[in-house]
Computed example of a mutant assay.
Amino acid sequence: MKNFKVTSLLCTLVMLTSAHAESDAHSPKKVDFTFKGPTGTFKRDELQRGFEVYKNVCSSCHGLAHLRIGNLQGKGKNIHEVRTSNLGLTKDEVAALAAEYKVQDLNADGEPIERKATPVDKFPAPFPNQKAARAANNGAYPPDLSMVVKARKGGADYVYSLLTGYQKAPEGVEIGEGRHYNPYFPGGQISMAQPLHTEGQVTYSDGTKATVEQMAHDVTAFLAWASEPESDDRKELGIKILFYLLIMTIIMYLSKRKIWADVK
C-alpha cells in the first residue's frame, strides 16, 4: 500500500511538471495553411517542395515509418491542381525513388536480408534501432515524423512555429549542454539544432525562393499530408454526403407535406 502511494505521488509530480513545462511554452503562431478546415485542401506544388525539404534536411535523423513510398504517386503532374491527395509523381519516378532506399526483409528460407525498397514499402528508418539513433544525436531520440502533426498539440501551427522559433536565449536563462533555446518547445530547451537556418539551404526544383519560412511552411504541409494522405478525398466525400443528405431532407419534407396535405 505504501509503495502504491509513493508511485501515485511520483506520477502526479511528473504530470504536474509536464503540464508546467507546456504552460511555459509560447502559443503556436497562427499560420494560413490551405489544408485547414473542413474544406481545406493540399497544394501539390507545396507538397512536392515539402518532400524536397524532408528528403534533403530531415530524413538523415527522422523517419516516416507510417508512410508508403507509393503514396507519393498520383494521376498526372499538374502542379497547379489543388485537390490532389498525393504528390503527383509518376509510376517510374516513384519506382526510382524507392530504389534509393534499402529495407530489411526475409528471403524464402526465412533468413534476414537487405534489399532495395519498392513502392509498396514504407519509408525506412534512418537508424537501425533507438540505441543507434541516440548515439548519433548526443543521447536524444529523433521522433518519427509521419504522425508528428497529429501527435503534437497545435498540430501544423506548432510544427511550423518550432521550426522557425529558434533564437538566442534571454538574459538569465541558462541553456544545458547540447541544448538550444526555442520558446515554442515545452521547457524552452530542445536537443535538436536548428534544422532550417539558411536561405537556399534547399534548392527547389520549381525555382521557388527557399527562405527559412518558405521551407518550414512547405515541410510542415508535407508532414500534415503524410499523417493522412487520404485527407482531401475524405473531405470531398464528406461534402458529397452532406449535400446528398440535404437533398434527401428536402425531398422527405416535401413528400411529408404532400402526403399529409389532405389530413385535417
Rank of each mutant, 00 (worst) to 15 (best):
T211N: 07
A133N: 13
E52R: 02
Y244M: 06
Y253P: 02
K2I: 14
S8H: 06
F51M: 07
L16R: 03
A125S: 15
L196P: 13
T164H: 08
T12W: 09
Y160A: 02
A221M: 04
V173M: 07
F243G: 14
K29S: 12
N78E: 11
V159M: 14
F33T: 04
T39H: 07
D121A: 03
R83C: 04
I259Y: 12
E46A: 03
T39S: 07
F42V: 01
S191K: 10
L13E: 06
L106E: 11
D121R: 13
Y54P: 02
K2A: 15
G200F: 05
P229I: 00
F243T: 14
L254R: 11
P128Q: 00
K131T: 13
T220F: 12
M248H: 03
S255P: 02
E81L: 10
V120C: 00
V120H: 08
R115G: 02
A132M: 11
V173Q: 05
G74P: 11
T84H: 02
A156Y: 13
V202Q: 03
G172V: 06
A117E: 02
Y204H: 09
G207C: 05
I241H: 04
L64C: 06
K122T: 12
H26L: 10
K256E: 05
L106A: 03
Q214A: 15
N86S: 15
R179E: 10
Y166R: 05
P128A: 04
V263G: 00
